[in-house]
């Protein structure tokens, strides 16, 4: 088995990590992966408590080490392995396995979704069984989850046999149902929740935005110019009035551009630079398991 499967002149369609859809080879790999996964889970469950911390630290170090190496290791000019020195072979190996590690990472991240569903079922299931306060809302939640799943899946199945033109002219029953639930209800509720921010911003600005000091005066004036610059009608009128007076520098669009280029951008760059250094320090601490908290506490 050539583990450097990508480091070949022609990348094979199937390799150690995948297989043809529906093939016995793929099924075997899935079963083996499942068994290995379950085995690791059981081993971790029965591992002594004092062994868990180093195990987690090791897993963190290996996972972080891969991304660190794939970022900082010098790259090889191409993927052919013949005649390469050890450093270049490592570079090719890192490049090869990036997709595989990314797949692992995507699957692990997707598990968070499953974890969320498990948590919802657990909390709201108990609430319904024990008839706790507002249990009826939990029933609505379960009904929503099930309905959305049914209509979503049925629509997807139905879609396989329909062209875009047919769907656009005459959407089927499942499509209408899915559309009502997803676009008609869920998405509008989502947008409604987000739109609350406008109310809070307006109310907060009205109550708190006061000219009490030089700093607040500068802040308020700058905010006023930026807000006005977002209003095309005002920009058009202001720029028309300002014309080429003072070399055109009194146009609202020019003043706004000056603020954006010379005040806003450098300010944000400074903040991001500081944040970057802090993130790097924190990442190093987590990678080396120096951070207190969780299993390290």
């Amino acid at each position: 088995m050539n583990w450097l499967f990508l480091a070949q002149a022609e990348t094979p369609e199937y390799n150690f990590w995948n297989g043809a859809p529906g093939s016995p080879a793929l099924l075997t790999k899935v079963v083996i992966a499942l068994l290995v996964g379950i085995g690791i889970m059981i081993a971790l469950m029965f591992a002594p408590t004092r062994l868990r911390r180093p195990l987690v630290a090791l897993a963190t170090f290996v996972a972080g080490g891969f991304w660190m190496a794939s970022t900082f290791w010098p790259t090889a000019p191409d993927a052919v392995t013949e005649g390469r020195n050890a450093s270049e072979k490592v570079a090719i190996f890192l490049k090869d396995v990036t997709s595989v590690v990314a797949d692992f990472s995507n699957v692990l991240t997707a598990f968070l979704l499953g974890l969320g569903i498990y948590s919802i079922v657990s909390v709201h299931g108990k609430r319904i069984l024990k008839r706790q306060q507002d249990w009826s809302f939990s029933v609505v939640l379960f009904a929503s989850i099930v309905l959305m799943a049914i209509f979503g899946y049925a629509d997807w199945m139905d879609e396989q046999n329909r062209t875009a033109a047919v769907t656009a002219l005459s959407p089927g029953f499942w499509n209408r149902g899915r559309d009502l639930l997803f676009d008609g209800m869920l998405q509008n509720m989502d947008a409604a929740m987000f739109s609350l921010i406008a109310f809070f911003i307006l109310s907060a600005a009205y109550r708190a935005f006061r000219i009490r000091s030089v700093e607040s005066t500068i802040l308020l004036s700058t905010a006023l110019i930026v807000m006005l610059s977002l209003m095309g009608v005002v920009v058009s009128a202001w720029d028309g009035l300002a014309g080429d007076f003072a070399g055109g520098n009194l146009k609202l669009s020019e003043i706004s551009k000056f603020i954006n280029s010379n005040l806003q951008t450098p300010g944000i760059q400074a903040v991001k630079f500081g944040l970057g250094i802090a993130t790097l320090a924190m990442a190093m601490r987590i990678w080396l398991s120096l951070e207190r908290g969780g299993l390290n506490s």
Partner: peptide
């Protein structure tokens, strides 16, 4: 959906064909 955008972007850089399965 690619749940992990960071890993996916790295994988696309390394090998576009294998990153998108």
């Amino acid at each position: 959906l690619f749940p992990d955008g960071r890993a996916t972007a790295k994988a696309m850089m390394a090998n576009l064909r294998t990153a998108i399965d």
